[in-house]
Design a protein around this nucleic acid. Structure first.
Lengths: 379, 379
DNA sequence: CTGAAAGCGCTTACAG
DNA sequence: CTGAAAGCGCTTACAG
């Protein structure tokens, strides 16, 4: 039923000033030649002070520096990379996508960034390791360090081994960027990853809004991959739980349920138990991308009106979201994490620009209506 | 109450192959010199066929073309823009931010893009017009066309005048990009804007999830600026309404309420009426960024438990979202629209890359928990 | 300590 | 129709 309820509409004529900004940009770009002329030196000398390569007398150095400052010189990056023979190599060490399809996404972003900075003589070295094999991590890391890259992006999933690697980086003065996993008190150039607890908290709010209020049962499902670490999972769980203890007067019973993804039958049994019990769920929060397993169960058993929230845009998840079996997918732009990791090193190495150290990904709320725009990674 | 319910956990050892991809990239970059040598011509001739500047005999032309193809030549863009004297100018014609603060955002993105492609000899010309003055649009457009830009980004808010301008662009073979407003059957290079109906539809789903189910009253608030067009507003309204008629068995009464933003007292009166009536609202959907006016009313009158959903990240809206007065803000990355408009012209003019014609912005769902990541525009 | 010169991969007149 | 040469703004040996 649609009711139209118009209010009085007063027309006003509040005419803002018309203005036209046509930048004439009369500022002529000044180059090292101009500086050289002003300072009565050769461009070679200017270059020496520009890059602190010494072999310049103090007085001329200061003179040149002064003029550079006065004229507000900024180097022409195109000319720089055209003439320079320096090659930059960015090494990447992340888990094998075979063990976790998640890692395809950051790699996609990494590759996209690599394509963009290729023209500036940047090259990529990608190595992967096995989640269930700490040695493979160390071995690959050592291989990389021996190849002497200009920068290093790594997912430090094994704490002890990572510390050893990081120490070596520090000694070599090799700038390194953490992706996805964060280790504290390191001299890492930057970190790009998720705010897992926060995303769980957000999911809880969505859950709370979506379920029928009043006493109810919520289930946190944690699909475990025995060979993969679980910190994201438990942080998401913590965030989810803390929302209900902090923000709402609505206090549902929250149950937690772990299961090994390699034995789906256990999941089915557990879900059977839950749905047959007198603790019938109002909603399920699946703390990672395996939410499609639960969605599949819902579909088969024709379960409706139970809110289902999960993570990540796997094709299966997208399908169930579009069908309406999953209500919300929380997503943390994994491609962007990879993309930005590369660019942080580019900014540091090439542009000599300062880089933000702590970088959490946006937490996207994906629904039927907006999934279209998140499906494909585009910069 | 938190209950832990563990399932059996079986450890498996599914060891994926370890692999190391160290791109050696032995492919030497080939340039016009190599082509020239292969074809036994000078680089001048190669350049002539590369740019179809004629003055080349058919046979040599074909020979060169063949070699270019064989060697898979791709031009070095850095060298190209370093040596070329060609300047590109992108003209922009959008509404004055004075009449609608929204337009600051696309402009921000436009400027960001401009900074990035400045090094490729791209320059920006920004002109603004007055929403309440169609003549100002036409005048500025003509001024721009006379300045003979390389590309044109415009918000064609006045239909008739826009058609005239567009016709001139077509004659001049000037590529033009629509931003925010779309006109059908034009030869525009691209369009960047919102999918307004879709966002209303999404807002309705959020609303439906958030309100207590059962019979209820929802209000669509349309804050009107008499000098600005309303198509986005009414599309959002339509989308909102159609969700309830299409997707849900839950059929609340939906009331629509327009008011002139220049007389806030009318809004207050209307809200007073609503909240005193026997049609007490479960939720209000404010179809644009003025949702903070309603939020302000909520705060003053200590209204709780009424779902409030609105648009855009104005500072006031952010504040009320963080306070919990507004539950959801729907946002359509206006900065990105500007940013991408510029890049579509860059791709077309400079890179000669094909450009997608229809580009809807992602519809972001913003809540307390993720607003942090959407506040600042970053590429 | 400093300068002159070649070169990066293109474009752009100009000469023939 | 075609080629030789200068130049874009830098870097990089090399000579003094």
């Amino acid at each position: 039923m649609f009711i139209y309820l118009p209010c009085t509409l007063t027309v006003i004529y509040d005419v803002p000033l018309i203005r036209l900004t046509l930048k004439k940009d009369a500022v002529l770009k000044i180059g090292i030649k101009d500086i050289a002329k002003q300072a009565n030196v050769s461009i070679g000398t200017v270059d020496r002070v520009l890059h602190n390569r010494g072999e310049v007398s103090k007085t001329t150095r200061e003179q040149v520096l002064k003029i550079i400052d006065e004229l507000g010189y900024t180097p022409n990056l195109l000319a720089k990379s055209l003439s320079s023979k320096i090659k930059y190599t960015i090494a990447v060490l992340i888990p094998d996508a075979g063990s976790n399809p998640y890692w395809e996404k950051p790699l996609e972003g990494i590759k996209a960034a690599a394509r963009e900075i290729k023209k500036f003589n940047f090259e990529l070295q990608v190595a992967t390791f096995d989640y269930s094999n700490e040695n493979s991590f160390t071995e690959k890391a050592n291989e990389i360090l021996e190849s002497n890259p200009s920068g290093f992006i790594l997912a430090p999933v094994f704490y002890e081994s990572s510390l050893t690697v990081i120490e070596k980086c520090d000694t070599l003065e090799l700038p390194y960027v953490f992706i996805d996993v964060f280790i504290e008190n390191c001299k890492n150039l930057a970190y790009f990853g998720q705010n897992s607890a926060q995303s769980g908290y957000l999911a809880a709010r969505l859950m709370n809004y979506s379920i029928n209020k009043g006493s109810s049962h919520l289930y946190i499902v944690k699909p475990l991959n025995p060979s993969a670490p679980v910190y994201h999972l438990s942080l998401r769980e913590k965030g989810f739980i803390s929302y209900f203890s902090l923000e709402t007067t609505n206090q549902p019973d929250i149950h937690s349920m772990d299961f090994d993804i390699s034995s789906p039958s256990i999941l089915v049994e557990s879900l059977d138990t839950i749905f047959a019990s007198n603790q019938y769920p109002s909603g399920l929060f699946v703390a990672n991308s395996r939410v499609h397993l639960v969605a599949n169960y819902f579909e088969k058993n024709k379960i409706k009106n139970v809110v289902l929230i999960g993570y990540d845009l796997l094709p299966e998840n997208i399908e169930y979201l579009e069908k309406g079996v999953i209500q919300f997918l929380v997503c943390q732009k994994p491609e962007e994490q990879g993309y930005k990791s590369v660019f942080s090193l580019f900014n540091h190495l090439f542009l000599k620009k300062p880089v933000d150290k702590l970088n959490y990904s946006p937490i996207d709320v994906i629904m039927k209506e907006n999934i279209e725009y998140y499906k494909n990674f585009k910069i």
